[in-house]
Design a protein around this nucleic acid. Structure first.
Lengths: 149, 149
DNA sequence: TGGGATAGCATGGGATTTCATGGTAGTCAA
DNA sequence: TTGACTACCATGAAATCCCATGCTATCCCA
């Protein structure tokens, strides 16, 4: 599982250290890292190759002409298998840098099965938003239910 | 898996570099490359010989006189097994060049089990379209469901 | 409990390899 | 003998690999 948040620097070559805990997570399960454009937010999403394969398999099961299949195929086109250097760094493809408006800082946010990479500005914005929703609506029922079980 | 997008040049001999990651993918699984007319779009589709065999087998399971079987047989007729030169380039058959309206640029788009080769114009059009659908309809249910798990 | 040693991690830079692409020589068929 | 096709060589740009460094957190012993 990918958990916790960390702020790392992106250098001039678009290299950035993947947080050590995320790396260990991938290595333990012998997984490759896939980065892709989030379908929901202006951020990069990272996940395992196995998980990405479940999306690929889903394409075959959908109606080939459907919008959903179309979107999923486009999502694959915007996905990259990423290699680590010896120090645990990766190069973020230019397309993804632009999409997430990344510059010299990246915020890594573990969300369980995958993680997000935000620009600091966008991260602040989304984080504040989540706090406001929390204040207004209270915690999600889902979480409370699971805790009681 | 075929992932990510890249723009390569087609030279006067109709030669074009297959993106290295696609090549590696084929070599690893010891697969031959098949190119054929997409059934859905004005583009070339590339895939492995193994996957092409599943299409062939599908014909046997269909009613031999059905429209589907007819279409699939036609697809086979316009399919080509493609050889690489020492640098990982292929020659695109003229029929396919014309079908996809290719000229001097090709856009390679990985979509999981196979990949598309578009003319830049057609690629732009389809990509924009996908973004519009995504905006209007939101991400496929599949994606949202997986996130909660 | 404090302070120094150590290991792990994030970052910088340069050497090396790979990749895309242009070109040429060789081969086969008409 | 010519024209088309194929196989291989050459080159510059870009991606990748690996060494070095400094910081921080952890550990261990006094």
């Amino acid at each position: 599982m990918f958990l916790s948040t960390s702020h790392n620097k992106i250098d001039l070559k678009c290299r950035v250290s993947i947080p050590a805990s995320f790396r260990v997570n991938l290595e333990k399960s012998n997984e490759k890292l896939i980065l892709f454009k989030s379908l929901q937010f202006k951020c990069i999403e990272g996940t395992t190759s196995t998980r990405m394969k479940t999306y690929v398999n889903a394409i075959d099961e959908l109606d080939a002409l459907s919008d959903e299949a179309f979107i999923l195929r486009m999502m694959m086109a915007d996905s990259f298998e990423i290699k680590f250097d010896i120090n645990g760094r990766v190069v973020i493809p230019e397309i993804l840098m632009n999409f997430a408006k990344l510059n010299d800082k990246a915020v890594f946010m573990g969300i369980g099965e995958s993680f997000y990479i935000w620009s600091p500005t966008e991260y602040e914005y989304q984080y504040t938003k989540s706090q406001e929703i929390l204040k207004a609506k209270g915690p999600p029922k889902l979480i409370l239910k699971k805790k009681i079980e």
